[in-house]
């Protein structure tokens, strides 16, 4: 089966320091891939490069019929890539001056130029899906961490992106809210949304992912189906990491 998302030779340097040393990754349509690995190995940077929050230095990113050469990416390429990738932040990063509903509508109105009633209708559907049908008028500061992250996910869902990127979506949450956020992501995964999720929740990764990618030192060390990585990893570094995180 062909790649819907093809990442080839992705390199990212921060001031001469290579943080990504040539990442190659192919995602099939509807594939759910979890990225695990020690902290500081470039997992966030990889997701951020795909969304051009950190512009990559080298490599090619292909999403469907859009193919961008990192070294020669124009502003239009960057915006096009962003429209095809939804990003969920560790710290939610909701717009503080907008209600939950407005957070979800914002991209539809400003980026996709939808008329307001249509955007409102879509936001209403999404609020239902994320279990916040009655909290649309609440500002982020009035929501719990779990509710805020669900709005963060709703905002990314509104883009109808080909690829959803989750950067440790439950790491900033109090333990009591982790479950509801994982449940929501599980439902999105069940809908066969193509996704890349960086997570420390190993059990969760094992349940929802079609494939586990283990990264260390800005490289993909090993990847395979969950059963193989968690039960029978080939690389000693993978086994050492999994022993550490238990």
């Amino acid at each position: 089966m062909s790649c819907e998302i093809d990442i080839a030779g992705l390199v990212k340097r921060f001031g001469g320091n290579a943080v990504l040393n040539g990442i190659d990754l192919c995602l099939k349509p509807g594939e759910r891939v979890a990225i695990i690995g020690p902290s500081g190995t470039g997992k966030s940077t990889l997701l951020r490069c795909l969304n051009f929050l950190d512009p990559p230095d080298e490599g090619r990113i292909t999403i469907g019929d859009l193919s961008v050469d990192a070294a020669r990416a124009s502003r239009a390429d960057m915006l096009a890539l962003r429209r095809r990738t939804g990003f969920v932040f560790q710290n939610y990063a909701l717009f503080a001056n907008k209600t939950a509903r407005e957070n979800i509508m914002e991209g539809l109105i400003t980026v996709r130029n939808w008329p307001k009633p249509k955007a409102e209708e879509r936001a209403r559907e999404i609020l239902q899906q994320i279990g916040l049908g009655d909290r649309g008028d609440s500002y982020p500061s009035a929501l719990s961490g779990g509710q805020q992250q669900r709005v963060g996910i709703g905002r990314a869902m509104a883009l109808d992106a080909e690829l959803m990127l989750f950067d440790e979506p439950t790491s900033a949450l109090d333990p009591e809210w982790v479950g509801e956020v994982l449940d929501l992501i599980r439902r999105i995964a069940d809908g066969r949304q193509t996704m890349l999720i960086v997570t420390h929740e190993m059990q969760f990764a094992r349940e929802i992912a079609d494939r586990i990618v283990f990264m260390e030192g800005g490289r993909i060390v090993e990847q395979g189906p969950p059963a193989q990585i968690f039960g029978n990893a080939r690389d000693e570094r993978t086994r050492a990491f999994l022993r550490r995180v238990g």
């Binding site: 939804g86 990003f87 990063a93 503080a96 914002e106 980026v111 509104a158």
Partner: peptide
């Protein structure tokens, strides 16, 4: 908060927007 800038960029908003 800088993360709000990034969130706005991530959904494809321009600098002006």
């Amino acid at each position: 908060d800088r993360s709000q800038w990034e969130a706005a960029q991530s959904i494809g908003m321009t600098q002006g927007q």
